[in-house]
C-alpha cells in the first residue's frame, strides 16, 4: 500500500493505493486521523485500492465517526470495485458519503 495526502479545493484528500490489509492499515488509519486532527474536511480516495480488509474498512468507519464528532466533512472518492464489494457486504455503502471524484463532490456545492 502507498498513501499520499494532498490539499485540494479546501479538502484534505487521502489517496490510498494497492492492498490495504493488516500490515498497512494502521498507516492508512494514521493518515486519516492526522488529517482530521488538523481540522481538515477529509476525503479518502479509494480509486486505486485493489483490496481492502476489515481493518482498513474499520479505519474508514473510525475516521467517519471522528469527523462527525469534530463536525468535519468526511467522504469516500472513486471507490474501486474491490473496495465497494467489501463495503457492500457490511452495508457500509449506505453509510459513507460516496462520490465518483473530487469534481463530483465539488459539483454538489453548485
Amino acid at each position: 500500500m502507498a498513501y499520499q495526502v494532498k490539499k485540494d479545493s479546501g479538502f484534505s484528500v487521502v489517496h490510498l493505493t494497492g492492498d490495504i490489509d493488516l500490515s498497512c492499515s494502521p498507516e492508512a488509519r494514521k493518515s486519516i486521523l492526522d488529517s482530521l486532527a488538523a481540522a481538515q474536511p477529509t476525503l479518502v480516495d479509494l480509486s486505486a485500492v485493489t483490496y481492502i480488509d476489515s481493518s482498513g474498512v474499520a479505519s474508514l468507519v473510525e475516521g467517519y465517526q471522528t469527523a462527525k464528532k469534530k463536525n468535519l466533512e468526511f467522504g469516500l472518492l472513486g471507490v474501486s470495485e474491490a473496495a465497494l464489494s467489501v463495503l457492500e457486504l457490511a452495508r457500509l455503502d449506505r453509510v459513507f458519503p460516496i462520490y465518483a471524484s473530487l469534481k463530483d463532490r465539488l459539483a454538489k456545492n453548485g
Binding site: 493488516l22 492499515s25 494502521p26 488509519r29 481493518s55 474498512v57 474499520a58 479505519s59 468507519v61 473510525e62
Partner: peptide, 11 residues
C-alpha cells in the same frame, strides 16, 4: 494482530 483497540472493536 497489533491493531489498535478501537479498530478491533469496530472490526
Amino acid at each position: 494482530t497489533r491493531l489498535d483497540d478501537s479498530i478491533i472493536e469496530i472490526t
